Amino acid sequence: MKRRAEKRAALRAPGRLITLGPEGTFSHEMALKLNAVPPEEIVLLPTIHGIMAAVARGDGDGIVPMENSEAGSVGETLDGLARHPLFITAEMYMPIHHNLASLVPLERIRVIYAHPQTHEQCSDAIEKWGVPVIHTSSNASSALEARKTPNAGALIPVIAAGLYHMPVLVRNTENNASNTTRFVRISHAPLQEKKPEKCSILIDPDQDRSGLLHDLLEAFARRNINLTRIESRPSKRKIGEYVFFLDTAWSEKTADAIIELKTITGVKELGCYRKIGVEP
C-alpha cells in the first residue's frame, strides 16, 4: 500500500522545466506561459547546451527556441538535438517584439548589447542608429550588461526591461512586425501521441552519392506526406559533410516512410508531437 501511495504522489508531483536564463529571456517567458497546474519548477540555465545536457540526464523537460521567422534556425538547438538522446514532445509559437532600453537617452548611447539572434532580427534599426553592438548569451544578459556599462543600451523584451528596471526608449525594434519564434519542449523520453500533428527526424547520411537526397525525399513524396521544413547542418566531423533536419506533417504513413529511410541511410527520430497554444 505504501508503494502505491508513493507512486500516486510521484505522478501528481510537479516536474522541472529547464530553460534559458537569467530571468527575462523569451524562453523564460514561454516557460511561464506554459506553467500548468500543479506548476512546474522553472530552472534557468545560462546556455542552450546546458539545457540539453540537463534534459538528457533526466533532470527535467526543457524549453528551447528552435527557429525564428526572421533569423532562421537556432544552431545550438539543432546541434544539441543531434548530439544528445533527446525528443521533441511539443511545439509552441510566440510573437517576438524587441525594445531598445537604456538608463540614458538614445543620443547618449555608445554601445548596444544584444543576443546574436536579436541583433539579426533588429538589424534595420541598429543600422539606422549606427551604434556598435556587443553580443551576449541571452536577452536578459543584455539587460544586465547594459545596466553596469556607462552609456549603454540593450535590445530586450518588455519582461526583461521590467525585471531589470530599464526604461524602454524605442518599442518594437524588430525588422518584421510579424516576427515569431518557434519553441519546442524536449524530453529524454519520446511522447506516446496517438495522433500527432508533426514529426521531426535527423538524417545522417552514411554515403555520398548522386541522387541520395532525391531518394530520401521521394520516400515522403510517394506517400503524399508534406515536408514542412528541411535544413542542412554541418556534421561537425569534417568540412563538406552535413546532416539534415526534416519536419513532416504527420500521417498514418509517416512511420512507413521513416522505416524506408532507415534502409537507405542513418536516421534519428526526434519525436512526433502537437502544437500547444499559448496566450499572446
Results as ranks from 00 to 15, higher is better:
165 H>Q: 14
165 H>F: 12
166 M>W: 04
166 M>E: 06
168 V>I: 15
168 V>E: 09
169 L>I: 07
169 L>Q: 04
170 V>F: 07
170 V>A: 12
171 R>K: 15
172 N>H: 15
172 N>M: 08
172 N>F: 08
173 T>C: 09
173 T>L: 04
173 T>R: 01
173 T>W: 02
175 N>C: 00
175 N>K: 02
176 N>D: 15
177 A>F: 11
177 A>D: 14
179 N>I: 02
180 T>V: 07
181 T>R: 09
181 T>M: 15
181 T>H: 05
181 T>K: 10
182 R>I: 00
182 R>N: 08
182 R>F: 05
183 F>W: 10
183 F>Q: 05
184 V>D: 00
184 V>S: 02
185 R>F: 04
185 R>Q: 12
186 I>P: 00
186 I>S: 07
186 I>D: 04
186 I>H: 07
186 I>V: 10
187 S>H: 03
188 H>L: 09
188 H>R: 13
188 H>G: 08
189 A>W: 10
189 A>L: 12
190 P>E: 03
192 Q>G: 10
193 E>G: 03
194 K>W: 07
194 K>S: 14
195 K>N: 13
195 K>R: 12
195 K>G: 08
195 K>D: 13
196 P>S: 09
196 P>R: 04
197 E>Y: 10
197 E>M: 11
197 E>D: 13
197 E>A: 11
198 K>H: 10
199 C>V: 07
199 C>H: 07
199 C>L: 08
201 I>N: 06
202 L>Y: 01
202 L>P: 01
203 I>G: 00
203 I>F: 02
203 I>L: 07
203 I>V: 12
206 D>P: 03
206 D>Q: 14
207 Q>W: 07
207 Q>T: 12
208 D>W: 14
208 D>I: 12
